[in-house]
Nucleic acid binder design. Structure first.
Lengths: 210, 210
DNA sequence: ACCTGTGAATAGTTTCACAGCT
DNA sequence: AGCTGTGAAACTATTCACAGGT
């Protein structure tokens, strides 16, 4: 197909994909781009363009079939396969993530947890098997883990990322403020730093006041 | 000054602002845009353009004074004032956020916590005063809180957001997957949804493989 | 030699407008 | 009347190239 989906489009479609799941749960059968726009905040134009980026799927006169569209997006975006993820850092944030049911409900299974403290590993309560951090590369490779979540202190992040990548991970979600430098540009990294987002929010607010 | 800072610029500058703090801590005195580019991953061109968006500050021949640039950005982006924030939802995630020292170290003070469960309020351990959720509007207004963090279940998010806004909050950081609809467009909302980001990451990975 | 600041050129994204279908 | 799909136009953002300073 069109072998290059622009990034903003990818992000909106990922969001729409999850939104469609909610519409299915509500029992809705069809939606129009206008209706999706109202719920998502995305412009109706953009929604149609974005979807068309992946090919045609809507019934031209009436709207989209909700389940059909979800299936279509899932297939084209590669969201129909379950991904194996691991979590590094079993502190407060790690424990919140490990306990977050919506992750597995969305097709992401946390199949391993890592921490550098043996003590933590022994006291931490989880369904997933836990390993010491020095085994990251080995276990990621052995289990065949696709994605890594870093919830360690900032100082450990670069090192952890390198081990994850060495193990064969293809994507990393980084909760630390560290700016990870990667040798292998094929690995995608997304940052979710609370302070950075708060800073942006604060700047937007200040901007609006002046 | 230039009364419209483009959003990508605002985000990069916010990131640079935090980066500069780290450089100061390391004792660096001056930086060039090239060096900032190497550390941040942002193109040197963009860095110079972004900074210039706020006015001139660099010594043309040599680079930027680190502390001077930080001060400049802080002033122009409104990051030099401490912001009062509140946290709604004192579950696992809320407890991780409440315990996150880097927030206060960055000028964001959590001055109130809210939860709908009275039981939680009694057992939760925190320095900030805690209140039942039905008091949100009242307390936000009374204390003069600028920003709200929503770490509740998805089902409560819309309601909480409306109360926060009614209390006079100017920005919201939303950790739930809920797409908040706001009457007042002056309020900025940033979403930090784990599943959404994981979905985007997953789509990027799949995209790269095909 | 290396730096910032900046207009000009390029690339990327969103918005518009409407053809064609139900 | 309301819908999708889509080329064209408008807009936004990034990248380039270099003038001018240290």
């Amino acid at each position: 197909m069109d072998h290059k989906i622009p990034n903003p489009t990818l992000e909106r479609l990922s969001m729409l994909y999850r939104l469609l799941e909610q519409l299915i749960a509500r029992g809705e059968k069809t939606v129009s781009s206008t209706r999706l726009a109202a719920v998502s905040g995305i412009a109706a134009h953009s929604i149609r363009k974005d979807i068309n980026c992946l090919g045609e799927v809507g019934a031209v006169g009436s709207g989209y079939d909700v389940a059909g569209l979800r299936g279509f997006l899932g297939e084209r975006l590669g969201l129909d396969v379950k991904r194996k993820a691991c979590l590094v850092g079993l502190g407060r944030l790690g424990s919140a993530i490990m306990a977050y049911e919506r992750l597995s409900a969305s097709g992401f299974e946390i199949v391993a947890g890592f921490d550098s403290s043996i003590n933590r590993l022994e006291t931490f309560h989880s369904n997933a098997p836990l390993f010491p951090a020095f085994e990251i590369t080995e276990q990621v490779h052995r289990i065949g883990i696709d994605l890594g979540i870093i919830a360690t202190p900032q100082s450990a992040a670069q090192d952890i990322a390198e081990r994850l990548i060495a193990g064969g991970v293809q994507g990393i979600l980084n909760f630390t403020p560290a700016l990870i430098r990667r040798g292998d540009a094929r690995v995608s990294i997304i940052d979710m730093d609370l302070v950075r987002e708060m800073t942006i929010l604060s700047a937007k607010v200040a901007q609006k006041q002046s």
